Simulated scan of single mutants.
Amino acid sequence: MKAFLGTGLLGANFTKALLKKGEQVQVWNRTALKAKALEAEGAIVYEQIADAVKGAAIVHVALKDDASVDEVLTAAVAGLQPGAMIIDHTTTSAEGAVRRTKAWKERGYTYLHAPVFMGPQNALEGTGFMMVSGDQEVIRKAEPILSPMTGKLINFGPEEGKAAGMKLIGNLFLVTFTAGLADTLALAKALHVSIDDVSALFESWNPAMALQARLKKIGGGNYDQPSWELDMARKDTGLFLQTAEQAGVKLAVIPAIAEEMDRWIEMGFGKKDWTVIGKGSTR
C-alpha cells in the first residue's frame, strides 16, 4: 500500500501512473475535490491526512513548499506505520530537506527528498528526471520504487540536501532562460520581426549547443583571450536597450545585465572576454 499526499497536477498524475501499474494508493489533498477526482481511477480518498497514510509503507509527498510539507507531515504522524518511508517530491530549500531528513530519522522514519524535473505528462508517462542525494543505503532501497516513476533517476551522492540544491539551480536556469526569451521576443517586436522568424533563426543557429563550453569558460577563470570583448558586448546591449526604448517596448532582464556589465567595465575588465561578468559567481 502506498499513500500520496498532495494531488495537484503532478501528484495526481503520479497517482494515476501508480494505479495503472496495479498499485493500491491512498490519497489526500488540501482541496478535497482534487483528490475525489481520483476515485474513478481507483484511488482510495481520505479527508484526514492521518487516515490517508495508515497502512502505507511508502508515503509520497508533492506539495508547495517547506512550510506545507512540515505542516502535512506533522498531521500525518498519528497514522504513519512504524518505519514508513516518506518520499518528498516537493521543491524546497536545501536546508529544509537536510533538517527533515535528520528529524524524521530521529523519529524512526526514513525521509528522502526526491525533487523532479517533470511536468504532469512526465509523471503520467514515467519520463523526465528525478533527483536524490544523501544516505546511499536509503537510496539503494528507494531506487526500485523511484526508477519506474521517471525517465532517469539521478543520484548526486551522499550529501544531504544536494538534490534540493540541484533542483533550485535548474529552476533558476529555467526562469532566467524564459525571461531571456521574453526579452528576445520583446526586441523582435521592437524590430517588427515575427516570432516565426525568430523561431527560424534558432532552428538554423542553436545557441544552446554552446552551454557546456560557456560553463567551462566562466568556471575556468581565464578571460584573457576574448571571443567577444565585454566592451563590445556592452555596446550591443546598449543597442538592445535603445531599440526597445524607441519602440516603447519594456525589457525585463537586460537592464540589470547592462548594469552588471558597467560594473565590470568600471573595474577595468572591458577588454576581457564578456563572460567575465560571471567571475564572481564561481567558487
Rank of each mutant, 00 (worst) to 15 (best):
D262R: 04
K167V: 08
T7I: 05
G126R: 07
M261S: 09
L63R: 03
Q136H: 11
K167Q: 12
G270D: 10
A67L: 07
Y46C: 11
D70V: 03
Q136M: 10
L19H: 08
N29S: 10
K250T: 13
M209E: 15
G221N: 09
S194G: 05
V253M: 14
M1Y: 05
S281T: 15
W28Q: 05
V138C: 05
G128L: 03
V27T: 03
T243I: 08
V77M: 15
I265Q: 15
A94V: 06
G22H: 13
K102G: 02
K271W: 04
M232Y: 15
G278I: 00
F4W: 09
W104P: 01
A208V: 08
A37E: 11
A12K: 02
I44C: 10
D51A: 13
Q26T: 01
R263Y: 08
A62K: 01
A213D: 12
D88C: 00
P120Q: 10
A56V: 05
E39K: 12
L215S: 12
M166W: 02
M118A: 06
Q121K: 12
I277L: 08
D196E: 15
L146N: 07
L168M: 13
P158N: 04
F177A: 14
V72A: 00
L172S: 11
P115G: 01
V249E: 09
E159I: 09
V27P: 03
V53Y: 02
A163F: 04
T184R: 05
N171C: 07
I277S: 01
V249F: 05
A252D: 14
A233V: 09
K34S: 09
F117I: 09
K36M: 11
L18H: 08
G151M: 02
A32F: 06
L174T: 11
V61C: 07
M130T: 02
G79D: 10
K271H: 12
E47A: 14
M149R: 13
E71C: 04
K34P: 00
S199M: 11
G42S: 07
E47Y: 02
P207W: 06
V138S: 07
Y46E: 10
E23R: 10
L112M: 07
P115H: 01
G42Q: 09
I49Q: 01
A247H: 06
K102W: 05
G128D: 03
A200D: 14
A35G: 02
E71Q: 14
S194Q: 07
K152T: 15
Q121Y: 06
L146K: 05
T176S: 10
S133V: 00
A37Q: 07
P207A: 10
V98I: 15
I58Q: 03
Q242C: 08
K152S: 10
L174E: 11
V116H: 02
G126E: 05
T176P: 04
W104N: 02
W28Y: 10
A57S: 15
A252Y: 12
N13A: 02
K16H: 08
I265V: 14
T237N: 08
G221Y: 07
